[in-house]
């Protein structure tokens, strides 16, 4: 394992740890208002200070990491759940009408800027965490479909697949039993990268009010609240931002490291 991968894994584990601990313990209840102690700078009692309602920022960040990671993970899961079967199906008969149809539909979804997609969905169904997840989940489907198809296509030319076909296995069964296990590595790498992107997407959407809604804290939501107060109390903007950077750097380093470790030749779609 490379040094980058070590740093990435430790960072990610740390952030994930904070999120998990918040399920059972936070320094203060994250929604507890304490107006007399509002906008306190970092101190021993509040290591990251308090916000404009006197809420403890460290506690909010712990819960916020959980929310942001939750949004990102579910959206990646949607992409995996639809993208992998579609990619496998498309790769079974390269250039066939199924392949053409799946890949052209993919192109159209891919042409939608993520933000345009999110705007469209929230304009129609109202802003919510669920709709942010749907928008990013939809965006993820063509990403995973492409990666799956790309990885699978080269495998279909290999001898062991040919052997399986000669043995009488159906294309569907070969896809599940032989192709999928062999492209798991690249899918995990791409998943890590989409996960990091998801953290950034949640932050951006919640920041402009299209994502997670109050009172649930998420990292983007906290930055939205901080926007008007950043000049008088910089700490309420600085820490959530650092948390985002920590998660994203961690996941990206881990993804890059994993890629080099699993197979230095494989290529990842960067979006």
């Amino acid at each position: 394992m490379s040094r980058g991968m070590w740093i990435g894994s430790v960072l990610t584990a740390l952030m994930l740890g904070l999120a998990l601990v918040s399920l059972v313990w936070t320094p203060y209840p994250y929604a507890q208002l304490d107006i007399p102690n509002k906008l306190l700078p970092p101190s021993l009692a509040h290591p990251m200070g308090t916000d404009h309602f006197g809420r403890d920022i460290l506690s909010m960040i712990m819960v916020g990491i959980r929310t942001s990671m939750g949004v990102a993970i579910v959206a990646v899961a949607i992409g995996l759940a639809f993208g992998i079967p579609l990619g496998l199906l498309a790769s079974q008969r390269k250039g066939g009408w199924v392949d053409e149809m799946i890949m052209r539909t993919n192109d159209v979804i891919f042409a939608f800027p993520l933000l345009a997609m999110a705007i469209l969905i929230t304009a129609v169904f109202g802003p919510s965490a669920t709709n942010a997840i749907i928008a990013f989940g939809l965006f993820n489907i063509p990403v995973f479909a492409r990666v799956t198809r790309g990885g699978a296509l080269s495998l279909w030319e290999r001898e062991f697949i040919f052997a399986a076909r000669v043995a009488g296995k159906s294309r569907l069964r070969i896809s599940a039993e032989h192709i999928l296990p062999n492209i798991l590595g690249i899918l995990i790498v791409q998943g890590t990268i989409q996960f990091a992107l998801g953290i950034q997407v949640e932050a951006a959407l919640s920041f402009v009010g299209l994502g997670v809604q109050p009172p649930t804290p998420s990292l983007g939501r906290m930055l939205a609240d901080a926007q008007t107060l950043v000049t008088i109390a910089p700490h309420i903007a600085i820490f959530p931002g650092l948390a985002i950077i920590g998660i994203v750097v961690g996941l990206n380093l881990m993804g890059d490291g994993l890629r080099d470790w699993l197979d230095p030749r494989i290529r990842v779609v960067r979006t």
Binding site: Q200, A204, A226, V230, T231, A237, I244, I245, V248, V249
Partner: peptide
């Protein structure tokens, strides 16, 4: 690596803090 991870709107707020305020 750091530049890729920094949310641009957060960076914008930090720029305001330093160069405007």
């Amino acid at each position: 690596q750091l530049g890729v991870a920094i949310p641009n709107f957060w960076f914008a707020m930090m720029l305001v803090l330093v160069f405007a305020v």
